[in-house]
Structures are given as structure tokens and as C-alpha cells.
Amino acid sequence: MNKKAEGPKKEKVVGTPALFVTEWWTQFLWDMYCPGCQTPLVGRLIAEAIEELGIGDRAIMVMGNGCHAYLAGGLDFDVTSGGHGRAPDIATAMKRVMPDGIVFTVQGDGDCVAIGADALIGALSRGEKITIIMVNNTNYGTTGGQMAPTTIVGQVTTTSPQGRNPDVEGYPTHAAELVATFRGVSYSARGSLHTTANYRRTKKYITTAFQRQAEGVGLSFVEVITACPPNWHMTPIESLAWIEEKAIPDFPLGEFKNVTHIE
């Protein structure tokens, strides 16, 4: 065993994704994310999908507001920022000015279906040929874990200390199913990152979403459920188990719409 360990030839299999700016990430950005936060993994999946499809030179990323927006410095694309929730509007303008570009937004759950619901519905009904990646951690993570539209019934947050009561606060919003009902949508899926198998599936969803936009079919939407251990008041490993037990029954995973042609 020692013989081999002395100087075996080795090749790197998995490392930092190619489209990540390593210096920026290691010196500044890594400090912005809490231990166990899976939002950087969404950035990794986006970087790998765009690298595989070979569309990195014409990709434009539009950020919303929230923890996911720290990805803006770490990814080696053209990046701009919208107002809170208005990323689909900015992306619409960019796609219309530059039809060859691959324009996608990265938004949180509060950004996408709470404050930006009007912008989202507008982009959906117009059938814009953009991609929307929604990072769903079932609360407002940046501001300290307040209740969001995606908070699960019974979940304890800062603004629902007794658990979310459906009589008063209603029921969680299911964005992927909502998006799938619109006619201009070509692809809608929901993935998770709490197991290795789901990681692979989510990567396939994101790759397919960019593929649909490159083909020019219609709007593609992927929702990714990620862990938020500090605001859920759990350890990172417990939060993965919580996703499996509580979040997945409420937010079923899978593809809800997948068409290659819109009549």
C-alpha cells in the first residue's frame, strides 16, 4: 500500500467547478454562507450544466435579493441584479434585446413567490424564453428566518413561533406546480439536494432547463429545496433528515411539465 502512495500518477476527478472564480470564493464568499447551507451547490450545478452545454460565453445571470445573490461574485458569467423580486423583468428585457443569449435568473423563495410573484406571473403568461432557478429553503433566510409563502404547515419560524397555522397564515405555495399550469412554459421541475440520488436528478433538471432555453421552446423553471440549518435550528445532518420527513411530503419532487413544442 505504501508503495503506491509514494508517487502514484493521479488525475483530478472532482474539484471546484470550472466556471467558479476560485480566489473570490475562497477569500470572501465562503464566509457569507452558513455551515450546511446548500445554496452554493445550486451555483455549482448551474456552473456544471452551463459548462456541459458549452453556452458559458453567452450566459447572463440575473440575481434577485437574498442569500443566493452572493453567488453573483462567485460565478464567472455576466451578472446583473434586479430589484427585489423583479429579476424576471430584467431577464425579459435582456432576452428581447439579445435573443441569442442564455438569460437565467436565480431567485429565492421569498424573492420569487412572495415579493416577485407579480413579475413571475407576468413572465409566465408572456411565455418568455428564459430560465428561472428558484432556491427554496422554506423561510426568509437572509433576514433571520421569518415565515415565507413556502413555509410548511406547523413549521416554527421567527414570525410563527407556534408553528404555521393554516387558519391564520394559510398553506404553502407550490411554485413548480403553479408554473406548470401556464401554456408558455416548456419545463417545470422540483429537485432536492438531501441525498446523492436527488443531487444527480436535480442536476439533470437544471441541465434540461438550460437545454430548453437553448432550443428556444419557452420558459423553463426549476425549484430546488435546500437546507437552511441555522434558521431551522438544527444541525446540518438533522436538517437533511427534516427535508426527507417534512418537506418532501409537502413538496413532491419530479418533473411537472416537459414539452419540446408549444402549440
Binding site: 500518477k9 472532482v14 474539484g15 467547478p17 465562503w30 452554493p40
Partner: peptide, 22 residues
């Protein structure tokens, strides 16, 4: 060298190397 640890690492802190058979 399956690479699962590096995929799942949210910090990108792990690099996986595979030995090339000589």
C-alpha cells in the same frame, strides 16, 4: 475516488484525485 464527498461539499473544499494505473 467516487467523488460524492466533493459533490456534496457546499464549500468546494474537497478535491478528489484518482490514481492512474501505471
Amino acid at each position: 475516488a467516487c467523488g460524492v464527498c466533493a459533490w456534496m461539499c457546499p464549500r468546494f473544499a474537497i478535491d478528489v484525485y484518482k490514481y492512474v494505473e501505471a
